[in-house]
């Protein structure tokens, strides 16, 4: 067992996967803290699922999958904003409509390609095959996300806790929400390679839900979220390496869920 573990850390692909996981885990957990505390889990699920048609179309047309995913995510955010601003449509139903439409579009495009196999990596992730170029994209995204979050940290904290007071101070809660959605889209696009379109949302929500159970303030929630994302993800990666049959994406999500259930049972 120990030998298997040691040999994992000598494999280049494993170390690359670990680095990608840590970088993605940091941005997903920091954004996830806001998602969970602001009760935006549903919208983040919509954003992560909606990138499917963008990626499929980009692959079919020979463009970069990242750009395709980003455009699809931004279109989804704009669609949600537009539908929910119409009379008689709540944001909740707007998210439901956009999520289903975008995901169905993705499946339709996959059908057009006549080759579903090419897209299994997109649906379920393939962290062990991340390239140096992928790590570059993930690193860039993480740096952008951390910079933006640091820049508007006070304002986002204020708007998340007391929206009316943020509005009175002029901090534009609506604009901050849009910034948050764009950052979620960016981070989701970068993470989709690791755990797949179906499970990316888990990387945002599960570690942060654990963090929210432990932390007494936003900084503590973020700290514990990052720790649970990186720690739980590493555990999942090791399990996937040890028991070869388990896909890495699923194992990472299950690894992240372990701290959640420990804390949940302890707090019960």
């Amino acid at each position: 067992m120990l030998n298997t573990l040691l040999s994992a850390f000598q494999e280049d692909f494993f170390l690359r996967a670990l680095l990608a996981l840590f970088l993605s885990g940091i941005s997903a957990a920091c954004l996830g803290s806001y998602i969970v505390l602001r009760r935006m889990s549903f919208i983040s699920t919509a954003m992560t699922h909606s990138i499917l048609p963008g990626v499929v179309l980009a692959v079919l047309l020979g463009f970069s999958a990242y750009w395709g995913a980003l455009i699809a995510a931004l279109l989804t955010a704009a669609g949600i904003a537009w539908i929910s601003s119409r009379k008689g449509s709540s944001e909740d139903s707007a998210i439901g409509v956009m999520l289903s439409v975008m995901f169905a579009l993705g499946i339709a495009f996959m059908g057009l390609s006549h080759s579903w196999r090419d897209f299994t990596g997109l649906l379920f992730g393939s962290i062990v095959s991340v390239s140096t170029e992928d790590i570059g994209v993930i690193l860039g995204t993480t740096l952008i996300v951390l910079f933006c979050l640091r820049l508007v940290h006070k304002e986002l904290e204020l708007a998340s806790f007391d929206e009316e007071y943020a509005h009175l101070l002029g901090a534009r809660p609506g604009l901050l929400r849009s910034v948050l959605l764009i950052l979620i889209a960016l981070a989701a696009v970068a993470s989709v390679r690791l755990v797949g379109a179906l499970l990316t949302t888990a990387l945002f929500i599960i570690p942060s839900t654990t963090g929210a159970l432990i932390g007494k303030n936003l900084k503590e929630v973020m700290f514990w979220s990052v720790l649970c994302a990186c720690g739980g993800g590493t555990l999942g990666l090791i399990i996937s390496y040890t028991f070869q049959g388990i896909p890495a994406g699923a194992a990472i999500v299950l690894g992240c869920a372990i701290p959640y259930f420990i804390v949940r049972i302890k707090n019960a």
Partner: peptide, 22 residues
């Protein structure tokens, strides 16, 4: 009745500090 987010963890000192944000 201030509409504060009941899920957002915040200590009293931070609440008061928010007055200085502007």
């Amino acid at each position: 009745s201030p509409q504060l987010n009941p899920d957002f963890p915040l200590q009293l000192k931070r609440l008061v500090q928010m007055g200085t944000y502007a």
